[in-house]
Design a protein around this nucleic acid. Structure first.
Length: 264
DNA sequence: AACAATGTTCAGTC
DNA sequence: GGACTGAACATTGT
């Protein structure tokens, strides 16, 4: 689930955890909390509180106050399938929201318990999510939601690798994942394997517009899985616009589907 | 059982 | 040194 729209929805859920005293933290999952030692995050934040929930691309973090002064930021990355759960509530983050399925307690990889009895948890079956203090977000490119047309042109339209690889490169722009990339390319009728530097301004602008529209729709509807082409992203799938078969391949190292006619 | 999965990162190669 | 590629990472589901 987690691409920019899901992370934004999770960030909104995170706001429910602000301004509450932190009574305890379970940071004993050494993989999710690496490189911190068990207890390190707890020692830094217990007694303090979260004061703001921020996001850049797929990276999220909370500003904090501890002992009357600013504390370290608490960074949270959802990885491939993580969810933020505050007081037992999750945001609308994909198919699992409609059908939550089993929720084994051991899939809670990180837990903040508040003095009022509530909690903030990172729920993550796959364990590819990550929690760390003072995450470095400076290496990320501009957020996909706010990047300007001009910035998009110069950053995405550079290099001879496939345009999809550029869209997925978080240092080029932050927030686009595999499904959103396929949706954006399909909306703009651009081949995922087209070399980025051969696109030209018109098609780069079309991609930018398609991205903004896809982001807005995904946030409004609850996640990238609601994209128009996403459910046709399967064997025997057909383009919902022209009816031509969808084809599958690997582009930029990721599983990719595109319309055999319109994105040739 | 083998393989793919909505993400990131690191070791290689050009 | 920068740009780019593919495997590895931990785990679940098909």
């Amino acid at each position: 689930m987690p691409e920019l729209p899901e992370v934004e929805l999770a960030r909104a859920v995170l706001e429910g955890a602000l301004d509450r005293t932190i009574a305890a933290i379970d940071d004993t999952d050494h993989w999710v909390c690496r490189p911190h030692a068990p207890g390190e995050i707890a020692a830094a934040l217990v007694g303090g509180r979260l004061t703001a929930a921020r996001r850049r691309g797929k990276a999220m973090w909370c500003e904090t106050r501890v002992g009357g002064g600013p504390g370290p930021d608490l960074g949270v990355h959802l990885g491939m399938g993580g969810q933020i759960v505050v007081d037992g509530r999750v945001g609308p983050t994909g198919p699992e929201h409609r059908d939550p399925g089993p929720r084994k307690p051991e899939w809670d990889r990180f837990t903040v318990t508040f003095a009022d009895g509530g909690s903030l948890r990172l729920f993550d079956k796959r364990r590819l999510g990550r929690v760390r203090l003072d995450p470095d977000v400076d290496a990320l490119g501009p957020d996909a939601e706010t990047i300007t047309r001009e910035e998009f042109r110069t950053r995405v339209g550079r290099g001879r690798s496939a345009v999809k690889a550029r869209l997925l490169d978080q240092s080029v722009l932050a927030g686009v994942g595999n499904l959103l990339a396929d949706e954006t390319l399909w909306q703009a009728r651009v081949s995922p394997s087209a070399p980025a530097d051969e696109l030209g301004a018109a098609r780069l602008d079309a991609l930018h517009d398609a991205l903004e529209a896809a982001l807005e729709a995904a946030i409004a509807h609850g996640g990238v899985h609601t994209g128009e082409v996403i459910r046709h992203r399967r064997p025997e799938g057909h383009c919902p616009r022209c009816g031509a078969p969808m084809v599958h391949g690997t582009v930029g190292g990721r599983s990719t589907w595109w319309c055999s006619a319109e994105q040739a």
